[in-house]
Design a protein around this nucleic acid. Structure first.
Lengths: 136, 136
DNA sequence: GTAGATGCAAAGTATTTGCGACAAG
DNA sequence: CTTGTCGCAAATACTTTGCATCTAC
């Protein structure tokens, strides 16, 4: 797992510092969508000397390398998650803030079709559903 | 047009000040998606004494009243547009920043279906397509 | 040894807020 | 009158950056 990350960093000509290894490891083990502050907390538990500036610089690096993905949900800050093999979108519970990941091929295909119809080639998209849990 | 906005403000128990009238009018006449700074520029041309704090307070008020909508595209700031009768989504040209509005009923329906499948009632959603113009 | 990375604190953006003055209802 | 609103400047939240030091390669 971290091998891959390290290889990707090297491929970019980036130096493999301890800080980067730690941040990459913590991110790759995250199953939620931490913001920078939360990531900084987790990383600090491993090495308390890492500065938040380095965390900011590293998430930017990892994002540009396609290793993690940034999301701007309806808050004032960015959240990150490791890039998945298969693309997915998010449903956010507006009561609890819980984030559920989902995949829907039909929607994906329709998006491409819509973009085409408008004369565009789709290169990226963002789909977020906001909902409240139904009583079961 | 501005009648509606004024009525809606009054219904909320909000006072109908000159500043609000001007900001609401400028927004209702906007066909693009201005950010607060741009809105402030436009408003200042009509009344140069209006402060940017008032613009921030007013867009928040108008948004909470459902009169305008906020969007967080992939920038660090919010953009606004008057609420439309019919809901629509956006396609953003990643080269030029141009924003194209579109409607696709099929996607809308699928979203509701997906949310239901996950046990949620869909109350809101955000769909943004990012693309590059195809040579015609 | 050298280019690139780090830590720190200062600087930048975007946005919010406390407060005294003011105006709408 | 009274309550909400305004303008101003200070404050906040998130993120970036200049610089001297340090470290991976």
């Amino acid at each position: 797992m971290s091998d891959t990350i390290e290889q990707k960093c090297l491929a970019k000509g980036a130096k493999l510092t301890d800080q980067r290894k730690i941040i990459a490891k913590v991110m790759s083990e995250s199953t939620d969508h931490p913001d920078v502050d939360e990531l900084y907390n987790r990383v600090s538990k491993i090495d308390s000397k890492i500065s938040i500036a380095t965390v900011y610089r590293t998430v930017k690096l990892l994002e540009e390398s396609g290793i993690i993905e940034r999301h701007d949900f309806k808050e004032g800050k960015s959240r990150y998650e490791p890039s998945a093999e298969e693309h997915h979108d998010h449903l956010i519970d507006i009561k609890t803030g819980e984030i559920i990941e989902f995949v829907d091929k039909e929607i994906e295909e329709l998006q491409i079709k819509v973009a085409n119809k408008l004369g565009y080639k789709l290169v990226d998209h963002k789909l977020e559903l906001y909902g409240i849990k139904k009583k079961s």
